[in-house]
Simulated assay, not measured.
Amino acid sequence: MLMKTKRADTGAPGGVPRGRHGWQRRIEELDPVRDHQEIHRITAGYEFPWDYQRSLEFALFRTYCVPTISELLQRTGEFEKRPQKRYDDTALLMAELVEHGYDSERGIESLRVVNRMHGKYDIDNDDMLYVLTTFIYEPIDWIDRFGWRRLTPNERLACFHFYRQVGIRMGIKNIPGSFEDFYRFKAEYERKHFRYTDDNHRVGTYTLKLFCSWFPAPLRPLVAQGVYALLDPMMLSAFGFPAAPIWLQNASRRALGARARFVRFLPPRRESKAARDRRNRSYPGYPVGYRPRDLGADNDNHRGARRRAA
């Protein structure tokens, strides 16, 4: 089972612990292999939901630095025509796995949708492996830099084991068996494959425009510069994006550091935020009234059907 006990009023695994480090103490009582689903749900849903959402936005962005991945996305036209829906589909399907577990009814349904979408295309196994690594190591790196505390060894290992099991259920082959080996694969893959192409630039630009669209129009040029400030030199080069001014890079990091210091003094979260992202525009009120099977490229008419039924 995903949870040992569950309070009906909060949904918190085992109830809400006392003190700002209460969830961390709960995590340290668990085994990162046996209990990896419970640990990862606490980390992503209770301790760092904002950081996980932001870091996974950049993790997906990072995968578009790979020419074979960006070429496929450009060929399908999905990120050009419906970038918000493609973003929402990916974010919500992965959030379902975190919130409910990959072997739960909603988790199995989510994986079925993911596998159906991927099954339409001939995708190289190493590309799939690489995308899987970004779901593990990009949030870890982000939280180490900008989180209100660093992740514990249990949390790091639980994240690895969680996504390794997700990858197995997606039919991805040759997934390394250790945290360190998978990280080495990621670093070597990026060294070999990150390079500029026009498709990278196009898909990166669509995604950048999507990020900017979440803010009022007068702020969008500054938002774009803020995104450039958080991209590393390898990503900037692969997209053909300009580097942000040094002062803005420093200001962005200071702002995220200030946020972390503020969050450090908040009480422990009582409700999981894993499957609730306010940037979701495609499925109003999700998850209320929706199932994972309603998501995905095969269901672009879902909302229209719901409106007609109403």
Score class of each variant (00 low, 15 high):
23 W>K: 08
83 P>H: 12
80 E>Q: 09
235 M>A: 15
301 N>K: 10
101 G>M: 02
230 L>D: 12
194 F>T: 00
295 L>G: 00
30 L>V: 09
148 W>Q: 05
74 Q>I: 04
169 R>K: 15
180 E>N: 05
58 F>Q: 12
298 D>E: 13
87 Y>P: 03
293 R>I: 14
262 F>E: 05
244 A>S: 04
36 H>G: 01
189 Y>A: 00
118 H>Y: 08
212 C>V: 04
141 D>H: 15
238 A>W: 06
149 R>C: 08
234 M>N: 10
273 K>Y: 15
244 A>F: 07
116 R>L: 07
185 F>A: 01
80 E>F: 07
57 E>H: 06
40 H>L: 15
249 Q>V: 12
303 R>K: 08
195 R>M: 08
133 T>L: 09
149 R>S: 10
124 D>F: 07
227 V>Y: 13
259 R>F: 08
230 L>S: 13
231 L>K: 01
125 N>M: 15
283 Y>S: 14
251 A>P: 02
135 F>T: 01
229 A>F: 10
237 S>N: 13
261 R>E: 11
35 D>E: 13
198 D>G: 08
189 Y>M: 02
278 R>G: 11
299 N>G: 02
75 R>T: 13
304 G>M: 10
233 P>R: 15
274 A>S: 08
105 E>C: 01
147 G>E: 02
68 T>W: 04
36 H>Q: 02
84 Q>M: 06
118 H>I: 06
230 L>I: 11
67 P>D: 08
175 I>M: 06
134 T>C: 09
189 Y>N: 01
61 F>I: 05
227 V>I: 15
186 K>N: 00
72 L>I: 03
12 A>C: 04
121 Y>R: 03
191 R>W: 09
40 H>E: 01
277 D>C: 07
172 I>K: 14
287 P>I: 01
